[in-house]
Design a protein around this nucleic acid. Sequence first.
DNA 1: ACCTTTTCTGATACCGGTAACATATTACTA
DNA 2: TAGTAATATGTTACCGGTATCAGAAAAGGT
Lengths: 345, 345
Amino acid sequence: MNKPENITINTIAEKAGTSKMTVSRVLNNHPYVKSKTRSKILNLIKKLKFHPNITAVNLSRKTPQTIALVIQYEHLFTNYYFTEVLQGIEKIVDDYSYNLIILNVTSRQEEEVERVTNWYFGKFVKGFLVMVPAQDSILVKKMREADIPFVLIGASGGFRGSNFVDVENYTGAYKAAKYLISLGHSQIGFIAGPPERGDAHEREAGFRKALADKGVPVSENLVVCGHFKEDLGYQAMLQLLIQPTRPTAVFAANDLMAKGAMMAIKESGLQIPKDISIIGFDDIDVASQLIPSLTTVKQPMFRLGTEAAGFLIEYTPEVDKPLHLILPTELIIRESSSRIWHFQK
Amino acid sequence: MNKPENITINTIAEKAGTSKMTVSRVLNNHPYVKSKTRSKILNLIKKLKFHPNITAVNLSRKTPQTIALVIQYEHLFTNYYFTEVLQGIEKIVDDYSYNLIILNVTSRQEEEVERVTNWYFGKFVKGFLVMVPAQDSILVKKMREADIPFVLIGASGGFRGSNFVDVENYTGAYKAAKYLISLGHSQIGFIAGPPERGDAHEREAGFRKALADKGVPVSENLVVCGHFKEDLGYQAMLQLLIQPTRPTAVFAANDLMAKGAMMAIKESGLQIPKDISIIGFDDIDVASQLIPSLTTVKQPMFRLGTEAAGFLIEYTPEVDKPLHLILPTELIIRESSSRIWHFQK
DNA sequence: ACCTTTTCTGATACCGGTAACATATTACTA
DNA sequence: TAGTAATATGTTACCGGTATCAGAAAAGGT
């Protein structure tokens, strides 16, 4: 009758001839264990393939050792940089020996909200990292009402009471536009993101402000929306190309759209940056691999993840002040932008 | 000194004047509770906002009530149908009152494997649903070695010993190609997926077999690779368009590439389906919204999720036989395909 | 050599639920 | 109306760890 071989901390203690408390100390790297005892226990653990029961650990500790990341898969395809943020999160989670679970939410159904918050109420997670674009998310609303610890990633607008990490969308866009102007461009197109999203909105605002500050007029027919999607960026560029005053430079509110736009430009027989300079936002992986490589505004995506996760893990209610962190963006100049080449029209 | 208000099952029992066992029975819908007692307890639960401690529940039950979905975000962008599979999974998980967590893996690092398997060894999850494209995944290898329950979704090739659910890639592609031939086409292009992926391979094989069976020769210059990506589908189509014998029909191994191909066709001034018929694979959401709407091979994606999750949840080791389920695909005829219009060349 | 401090180990209670069994109540049957 | 079955509730032990405190062994100081 070989029973199912359920190896627990007791099994190890028994075989090692110690109490289970000593085994627990070894597991948690407690200093007060004789090195001989320690190694004997470690050997047994390895030999018997013992793994502590996550659930039991969680139950006996006061605070959970797990955090959850909440994302909306539907929107993932415009959150291309998501992967890099996740890497940052995982780095920190690992450093703290925490666990990370990912939860998916779709729309704005009450029912789904509970499925998420139950992980907190059920004392399994310490809190949430929230990456949903919509500000009006009822999930976020419920979390605030219930005093659940959470950190918004990349959605600062309208949440002054909550924790968030975000990037300088406004300033980044401002810098990009200013840079184009400094290269001599004055007919500058803009491919905007989805108007309902805060980050998209801020980027457009930064763009407009830079032009205004420098006395460059914004031609409204050179501002088109591409909803952060590559194919719509392509379409948007086609629109810009048929305008009577063709832009000499185009600023796309994210790299994906910039990529689409570059394709449109190339197909129309024009050259980048000779005929049209192009600049993006995000600095996603492929930006540097495009031909020509894409000038863009780099978001510190990895750090977005580390900061958010670090705060949540360290967070102590009633002690910590809300986290309002806005990370700087950086203009990365590559080949797709250049000084205006010749006078047009 | 208002203490942190930790509401447990004991709190409820005390206030209700019963034992905590009765409360537990109410929580689990056990029939033997007087309805008056039941409603009194339910009211207290609602009033005090009690939520059972997930961790404690897991610890006292023998089997965990949670399953994990393992995905590879890097590859997500070619797994566009992922969202629909997920919905199927969530449906079942919900029906069984289970929980679902999502775990991300990136490459093939040992370290990551342990992070995943620990959820099982730590007795928190009953098993895994695995959606990683690579057959050579060391995660899958380890899971097999350790006898961890798991179900592969959409990756049947080479895993005869493991559980999997997949779709009839071969047959689906065969049907699609046969259909094109039946419309009178004989110069048929094929835009292939990444050669290292089993599903891509099967689709190509089905395509080739159909042509062979019907005595239609495969021109190798009409077979190009698009790696399941939209923009590469576009590029691939451009390739096909400049071939000396332009195809009158093109079969793309997934809808995303078909979408890109359609764009290329339209831009070249040709009409779909008048000049070129096009057909995809997957039936992703947008397929029916394209103009013209896309004829495609529909995968039962939702059901892929329900079957996999259902099996894993019901699974009993040593009793159940391995799950080898291959779901049928269906040819959905829409506007993008038609009988050959005129004789070319 | 004795006393203090530091290092090491164990006993016990507990985290918050559920399982299994026992007991008390009601309902039904003859 | 007693006797049995069905319904309703409580008791106890336990899931597998950790915290806390107490005690033992080793190390250090004078």
